[in-house]
Nucleic acid binder design. Structure first.
Length: 313
RNA sequence: GCAGGGGUGGUCGAGUGGUUAAAGGCACCGGGCUGUAAACCCGGCGGGCUUCACUGCCCUACGUAGGUUCAAAUCCUACCCCCUGCA
């Protein structure tokens, strides 16, 4: 609606908050009014071929605003926070070279943090190694991995709960791949890129009860719109049921249903729970994220949109 | 109508005289999180007061009303409601 204002160029806008809080609607409005382009900051929307339960904004509803880092990764690979940060940084540069404002939209707190506070250097995941460790975990339990880590990096093992297998596993992988203890590498974080200092982070905080109600309804809609068929199609195509993409909310429980591990009713109810729990964790995450400007309400609300726009001027 | 089973905290569900504000699960609330993050982990959870804290105290609570007992969610009596079998 408005021409770019040069003073906006100094800012990179981020719109975060719990799932179903209206981030996308707010993001599009802000992008329209500031001459912005959107960069997706959601760990699931990056994947192609998963659609119904991802809340990706359909092309027709983007109101002409360019969207990046959405729908561009094969669902059989695992896209990581570092992958995202690297790609996002590059995309921000491209957007700004066009004289536009970058608007980050999404609820994956770790991704945003990976951009603001780059992680210490580390080799890419070794999938074979990860599979081997996964096999150990499934056969002997997560405590077994923890005991292994104790031998390699007792400092790290002491800090981690024995059942916190993703971190334990990661620490073992790091040691086996580099010969270094992850605990000793932590302090070696690169300094933040300059975009980090130009970031304005707005977090939506809608009324909790209404948010939960929306999540429940949205989940029912996803199933009514053919989520089960979508998952069945992906599995038939040969997408493994244990990929990151199919671990997303909705997909995960449907895979279990199709494997005969739960009823359809159970899958729906469990999905609602998963998503509500997730929304809560997102709120917790952003609460302690530095420099966040909290906005009460849902992102579709015009008054909320005006409030954010006003803060930008 | 008769026989049998049952009514417990937001919910499911243990508990059959004291060590029970009542196991455990779930919901809900809070916290953590550095290359799988829509992942994963930890804590709280009847109310009020007290201590910096370890703690301590009071009130309310196991369908309802009454009773037995030093002491009851647990035993007895009556009533209400639910389920199953017989008719």
């Amino acid at each position: 609606m408005q021409e770019n204002k040069s003073n906006n160029l100094r800012h990179i806008i981020a719109i975060v908050g719990p799932t179903a809080s209206g981030k996308s609607a707010l993001g599009i409005e802000v992008a329209l009014r500031t001459g912005g382009e959107i960069i997706n900051c959601d760990s699931v929307q990056v994947y192609q071929q998963i659609e119904i339960a991802t809340a990706k904004v359909p092309f027709e509803e983007r109101r002409g605003v360019a969207h990046h880092l959405i729908d561009f990764v094969s669902p059989i690979v695992t896209f990581t926070a570092v992958d995202w940060a690297r790609t996002a940084l590059q995309t921000i540069g491209e957007i700004e070279s066009r004289g536009h404002v970058a608007v980050l939209v999404g609820g994956t707190g770790l991704y945003l943090r990976a951009l603001r506070h780059p992680f210490f250097p580390s080799p890419a995941t070794d999938e074979d190694l990860r599979q081997r460790l996964t096999r150990i975990r499934k056969r002997y339990g997560p405590e077994r991995l923890h005991r292994i880590l104790q031998k390699f990096d007792s400092d790290e093992a002491a800090k981690l709960n024995a059942r916190d297998w993703p971190r334990v596993q990661r620490a073992i992988e790091f040691y086996l791949q580099t010969g270094e203890k992850i605990s000793s590498q932590r302090p070696l974080r690169p300094s933040p890129p300059d975009v980090a200092t130009r970031l304005r982070v707005f977090a939506l905080n809608p009324p909790r009860a209404e948010l939960y109600e929306r999540i429940n309804q949205r989940t029912d809609e996803h199933f009514a719109n053919g989520l089960v068929e979508e998952v069945r199609g992906l599995l038939d195509q040969g997408v493994p049921g244990n990929t990151s993409a199919l671990g997303a909310h909705g997909y995960r429980r449907v895979v279990e249903y199709l494997n005969g591990e739960r009823t359809l009713e159970g899958a729906i109810e469990q999905t609602k729970l998963d998503v509500r729990h997730y929304a809560k964790r997102q709120l917790t995450w952003f609460r302690r994220e530095a420099g966040v400007e909290w906005i009460e309400g849902f992102g579709e609300d015009q008054q909320v949109q005006e409030r954010v726009l006003a803060l930008l001027h």
